[in-house]
Design a protein around this nucleic acid. Structure first.
Lengths: 248, 248
DNA sequence: TGAAAAATTAATGTATACATTGCGTATCCG
DNA sequence: CGGATACGCAATGTATACATTAATTTTTCA
């Protein structure tokens, strides 16, 4: 199973990190299961040193949990944990939007966001929305959120948002693909896009409280998507990250 | 300078982490300065492997910054970065307070907080407040904030708050000692303690918005302290962490 | 004299051998 | 038969040798 002769341009540490992350997110390692270094060495084909580095990084990402006596295990998340992570991300993005609004942004800085908005408009115009369009939406949505975060011009906040969004189910696009199979899909996307427009408008008019509130509400769409997807359990295969979710 | 024959009960990694953290916070390593592994080995007296671990951990803490080509350097912070970090921490603590209020807490859970409040009352009663009392206040204040964070009963949020408070100048007690030399000292402490009482009251009455707002405002006291301390530059020696702050 | 290229040096990245600690098991004693 | 202790195994923690890559200096040519 080891992948030898892999790309030389990336370090062994990164390669191990990618391989182990995939393994965890795919659910082939159960939550709570210990992942030993030697086991990881066999899987990734690199030596213990970079494996160890990768494990530490994945713990920092939030996918693994350190065992007090040493070593790591796959972290388990409850549905509540996921909802809280989404609310947390929304709160941070709200703060970023408020900073942007209060501190002011040049029209030059807003340009790429508006461009992003227009491209998304082109996607959601079709009815029904194709799977490819959903895929494009995920990318554009991620770009929009990244640009918005940057507008805060606050390195500490940007750092924290990146860390909060590292968990796949907490990221802005975490549950977009999940809704692609739902009947409410298009409507939810239209609402999300309206949020996008509102927050840009609020920032432009330096309405800090409004910008903050709408980003918080925007994140709650992800929570709604999650609940809908869990109700229609037919398309859960679109959400590999849910392999980490345990009962409760 | 190496500290050999140190306590056997802690790992070499932890020892290196402590030593290097001290070195950075004391300002003996300038912001932007590269800290090589070999150099760290000489300083800490442990081998490269645990030193490397410690460097990764300190980067995660936010004290170091990874150099793209490899290695680490001491991170530089602007005054704005610090103010943003404080606002960020206040926002997260606000969210924790709101969660606690909305979800409800038992009187049993509130007990240790109220105990904490009473002990702080005993300290701020004296006028003027002794340096020892300030020291005790720092400990009790940290305890209060930790207990409050726990009340959210949200592991993802608790984790994020811990990470945000890891930077000494962003922690709840980061600038308390700085004000000990200020004439406004006692008044600020009285206000802070009022905030403490208000947030407990809000949580008890399940007033989420109020609990959130007061915690945000509470954090801004730290920002005020920082600005006061920077104006009276006479007692900056109480704040070793400011060694990391560069102009701008 | 300047700039470019090559060589040297010093740094990090990687692998592995060794040490130590925690954990499970089996045995012995009560 | 039950529990505690001791033993052995397997895991992580540590040190160091080696490989590779980045930085610096020196040398050479224009």
């Amino acid at each position: 199973m080891a992948e030898r002769e892999a790309d030389r341009s990336v370090s062994q540490t990164v390669r191990a990190q990618l391989a182990l992350r995939d393994l965890v997110l795919s659910g082939r390692l159960r939550p709570g299961e210990r992942i030993s270094e030697l086991q990881a060495v066999e899987i990734t084909g690199v030596s213990r040193t970079p494996v160890r580095m990768a494990l530490v990084r994945l713990e920092e990402e939030g996918l693994l949990e350190a065992i007090p006596s040493g070593g790591f295990m796959v972290k388990a998340f409850s549905e509540r944990d996921i909802l809280d992570s989404i609310e947390l991300r929304g709160t941070l993005e709200g703060l970023a939007a408020r900073f942007a609004a209060e501190r002011g942004v040049s029209s030059r800085d807003l340009e790429p966001l508006k461009e992003c908005l227009n491209e998304i408009d082109g996607l959601v115009r079709q009815d029904p929305i194709s799977v490819e369009a959903f895929s494009s939406y995920v990318a554009l949505n991620a770009r929009f959120h990244a640009l918005l975060t940057e507008l805060s011009r606050s390195p500490p906040l940007i750092r924290q948002i990146d860390r909060a969004s590292a968990l796949p189910f907490a990221s802005p696009s975490g549950f977009v693909m999940a809704q692609s199979a739902l009947p409410e899909a298009r409507q939810i996307l239209l609402i999300a896009q309206d949020h996008h427009r509102v927050v840009v408008d609020a920032i432009e008019n330096r309405e800090g409280a409004r910008a903050e509130a709408i980003m918080r509400e925007h994140a709650r769409l992800a929570a709604r998507n999650l609940r809908l997807a869990l109700r229609n359990r037919t398309h859960l295969d679109l959400l590999p990250a849910l392999a980490l979710v345990t009962a409760g």
